[in-house]
């Protein structure tokens, strides 16, 4: 259990994290989302006492990180930037960390095996690919068999097989009753692995809820309706809480009403329907809607309009590049 309370981090004039409070519970994977520069990494560094908060506290299982007698056995952390000396072999890197706690060589070999680096364990880490570096970081996080795990962008640089491996690993770790906090800018990854979300924008908490609630609460849920008497239907449905957008001569996108209600209303008025399809916003769209105002670095919009409602996202492997507009759908993250 990680309890973050009133956490604030100030760098000179700039507030990186502002009065952030949330709780990460054991037994499920909690996703930590936010655009680039929103304070995710800063928060994670404060959890393990690398950075000192300007105010506020972090408690892990009720204790401060620095008060643990065996911190590696309590919290395992994979931090965003590589935390490995490039001149040292993977084995010696892990051995040096293990020795601070009196953890034996057997466990070092075990985690090397677990992350699939056995073949290169004696090679210098400087020659590792980004993906191998991530695996080494994960090995270090697992070294003390900790009950709490913090992963900052763990799938960065991993190949599809590696991504699937991480996904399974995260779920297994949570299923064993551990507390797992994972940050990622890959929405698709969060949709597949996380059950709970903590969303921040510009260092402030935006949402702290289950993935299902988060998506449901987002304004992106619409119903796609096709009818020969579309204009008539639109006038019938329109009210203060309901918006209707015409998407062609006989197509409507209705938000604020369930498909059931639309069907009943249409039947009541004798309007025939050719199509009535509820469309749930993808996690990505929900995220975009919520963070649109808090994105720090805006980029230009290339070709497609932002939040294109026809995206069947959530599985598209789209990558958030720190802009509200430039959502680039690509096969990159697809496993």
């Amino acid at each position: 259990m990680i309890e973050v309370a009133g956490l604030t981090k100030r760098y000179g004039e700039k507030l990186a994290v502002t009065d952030l409070s949330f709780t990460v519970r054991p037994g499920l994977v909690t996703g930590f989302l936010g655009p680039n520069g929103s304070g995710k990494s800063t928060t994670m560094r404060m959890i393990v006492d690398l950075d000192t908060p300007s105010s506020g506290t972090v408690r892990i299982n009720g204790q401060r990180y620095r008060d643990f007698r065996a911190p590696l056995c309590e919290v395992g952390a994979l931090l965003e930037a590589r935390s490995v000396h490039s001149g040292r072999s993977a084995h010696n890197h892990l051995l040096a960390l293990a020795q601070t706690h009196g953890i034996g060589r057997r466990r070092v070999d075990e985690v090397v095996e677990l992350v699939g680096l056995a073949a290169v364990a004696r090679k210098r880490a400087g020659g590792f690919s980004l993906g191998m570096g991530q695996r080494l970081g994960i090995a270090a996080a697992l070294l003390g068999d900790p009950g709490t795990l913090i992963f900052d962008e763990p799938v960065n640089g991993l190949d599809p097989e590696g991504i699937r491996w991480i996904r399974t690993l995260l779920k297994d770790l949570a299923a064993q009753g551990r507390t797992v906090l994972v940050s990622s800018h890959l929405m698709s990854e969060m949709a597949l692995t996380a059950e709970h979300l903590v969303v921040i924008g510009q260092g402030r908490l935006i949402a702290d809820q289950s993935v299902a609630d988060f998506v449901a609460a987002a304004s992106g849920n619409t119903v796609h309706v096709r009818s020969p008497r579309a204009t008539e239907l639109r006038d019938l449905l329109l009210s203060t809480d309901v918006t209707v957008r015409a998407d062609g001569p006989d197509v409507l996108e209705v938000s604020g009403l369930s498909s059931d209600r639309i069907g009943i209303a249409a039947a009541g008025a004798g309007i025939p329907l050719y199509e009535l399809t509820p469309r749930q916003a993808s996690l990505e769209e929900a995220f975009m809607t919520l963070t649109r105002d808090t994105v720090e670095y805006h980029g230009g919009t290339p070709s497609s309009p932002p939040g294109d409602p026809t995206t069947t996202a959530g599985r598209s492997g789209a990558e958030l590049v720190g802009t509200a507009g430039a959502v680039v759908g690509g096969p990159g993250a697809r496993a």
């Binding site: 911190p71 009196g102 699939g116 073949a119 097989e161 491996w165 399974t168 064993q176």
Partner: peptide
């Protein structure tokens, strides 16, 4: 590299064992 899965005892494994601490 093979896709390893977690096949280890529950969290109580190492952490609970006395003797692991920084000196």
């Amino acid at each position: 590299m093979t896709a390893a899965t977690v096949e280890r005892p529950a969290p109580s494994g190492l952490a609970a064992g006395a003797g692991y601490r920084v000196t």
